[in-house]
Design a protein around this nucleic acid. Structure first.
Length: 469
RNA sequence: GGCCACGUGGCGGAGUGGUUACGUAGCGGACUGCAAAUCCGCGUACCCCGGUUCAAUUCCGGGCGUGGCCUCCA
């Protein structure tokens, strides 16, 4: 079976045909680094990591180029820097915010079993480049030269009227957009839907020499960043562009407009993929509801990164997810059950099961793939189970870390717990069950769960214990 | 209001024009002094209304519901 992907551009699932099978190219919009990444941010990172792994499997690892950017220039970053470091010069404060946030992001997603992309460009490195290769300024100047953009009051604006099929990705016409517009239109705009490519910086804000003869130093608009980084690293036309469904409009629509009009191409990427949104306990995640769940929080609460990853992949990437504690508990139970089997080898891929690959080849049907895993587990086919888990990015490491932490905690209470267990076994031996149950209840109150097993050789009853979650 | 996606059992979720999903929770049984763990077994589903069809959860139309987006971010 061939790889099939759903394409937002055509609203259909179609066979994926790479432009160049020896270099399959994918771009995914990465985080804006101003705050902890939340669990909704984690979704595209995980989903496209699975696609990256699949592409590497199909086309060979060195034939896939995956770019996921870091946006480190943005109004939200400026605001956060001013708030958190009021004493510092803004630019210094910004550097502190972006560096810390970027490091946190990398630590978080490493726990989620995410492979590093081939390139991870920072937006600020692609504003003006010394080597003369494509960057934001050169793209903007090309757009002005080709009369797709104009200068007005030190801004450069993209003229959406200059592009006949603007709106194709989000499937709406200019008239519809204008009718739905609910924001005041700046007076210097030619058309109400025209968007900013470059804007002047206020004093103290990050600033770069402006393009197109503008004297005031400025900074790039949001959309031009991705066009520049994708163009510079993947070329004017590439295979797959991904991101969250909320980015379809305006971000991706505008990326397409910029890249196509600057390069004079009929498309920017062949396949546009969008992952669905995420709710938390049935509610939209929002600051006002106070239910913003960060990856960092979940990890520090003790959820192994792999459980978060598994929980994400139990739902198809285009479906909405309701992110719940109950779901996490279920995910953890399944995963720990599988990894409890001795001899599970996630590194051995000699028998990578075809059914799992075929499920993934069908527009990344991870729930189906997971269903196959349940089948292997039920059939005690640990070779396939291990291979498939490893392929999907699960090696048990974060589960073992969680175990190790549990063992550490257990050791700290062992001196109190173990005499009680011995006392209970003695009570049982003399059939004083009231006393043995009393001890068990006492331990339960301390969060200790007991398990009695019969030693097959001696016939003795033995008790093991663990700290209940 | 416009555009888009989705609607399967308590929950997650696969799949199909007529046949068991599966997982988790629940229930029953085995084991146990009783539990826990484990093993075995069981149950309830395809949003509504039309249409096509011998037959529709599965195809078509309409409706209802849920979620997302509707500019340079508040």
């Amino acid at each position: 079976m061939a790889l099939k992907l759903y394409n937002t551009l055509t609203r259909q699932k179609a066979e994926f045909v790479p432009i160049d099978p020896s270099n399959v190219r994918m771009y995914v919009c990465g985080p804006t680094v101003y705050d902890y990444a939340h669990i909704g941010n984690a979704r595209p990172v995980i989903v496209f990591d699975v696609l990256f792994r699949l592409l590497r499997h199909i086309y060979r690892p060195d034939h896939v180029t995956y770019v996921r950017n870091i946006t480190d220039v943005d109004d939200k970053i400026n605001a956060r820097a001013a708030r958190d470091y009021p004493g510092l010069p803004l630019n210094e404060a910004i550097r502190k915010v972006t560096e810390a946030t970027e490091n946190q992001f990398h630590a978080d997603i490493a726990a989620l079993g995410v492979l590093p992309p081939t390139y991870e460009p920072r937006a600020t490195e692609y504003i003006r480049r010394k080597d003369g290769r494509e960057d934001m300024v050169s793209l903007i100047e090309a757009l002005v030269k080709r009369r797709h953009a104009y200068v007005a009051e030190d801004h450069v604006l993209f003229d959406v009227g200059s592009m006949s099929d603007y709106g194709r990705l989000s499937n709406r016409t200019l008239e519809e957009m204008e009718a739905g517009a609910r924001v005041e239109v700046a007076p210097y705009k030619k058309g109400p839907m025209d968007f900013v490519l470059w804007k002047p910086s206020k004093p103290g804000e990050p600033a770069w020499p402006s393009p197109s003869g503008i004297k005031t130093p400025g900074r790039p608009g949001w959309h031009i960043e991705c066009s520049a980084m994708a163009g510079a690293l993947l070329g004017p036309v590439f295979d797959i562009h991904g991101g969250g469904i909320d980015l379809t409009f305006p971000h991706h629509e505008n990326e397409i407009a910029q890249s196509r009009c600057a390069h004079g191409t009929s498309k920017m990427a062949n396949v546009w993929m969008h992952n669905g949104f995420l709710q938390v306990e049935g509610e939209k995640m929002s600051k006002s509801l106070g239910n913003f769940v960060t990856i960092h929080e979940l990890l520090t609460d003790g959820w192994p990164g792999e459980v978060l990853r598994f929980n994400m992949l139990r739902t198809h990437y285009r479906q909405p997810i309701d992110w719940t504690k109950k779901g996490l508990e279920e995910s953890q139970k399944i995963l720990t059950g599988w990894f409890a089997h001795e001899g599970l080898d996630t590194d051995d891929r000699t028998s990578l099961p075809r059914d799992v690959i075929e499920a993934l080849e069908d527009d990344l049907n991870t729930p189906k793939a997971i269903a196959e895993l349940h089948g292997y587990a039920a059939a005690k086919d640990f070779k396939n189970l291990g291979a498939a888990l490893g392929f999907l990015g699960f090696d048990g490491a974060t589960l073992r870390q969680a175990d190790a932490r549990a063992v550490e905690t257990a050791q700290s209470v062992a001196s109190t717990v173990e005499p009680l267990i011995i006392a209970r076994l003695e009570a049982r031996k003399r059939k004083d069950f009231a006393e043995s149950d009393r001890i068990r209840d006492e331990l339960a109150k301390m969060g200790i769960a007991l398990k009695d097993t019969k030693n097959k050789e001696t016939g003795e009853i033995e008790t093991t214990w663990e700290i209940a979650r």
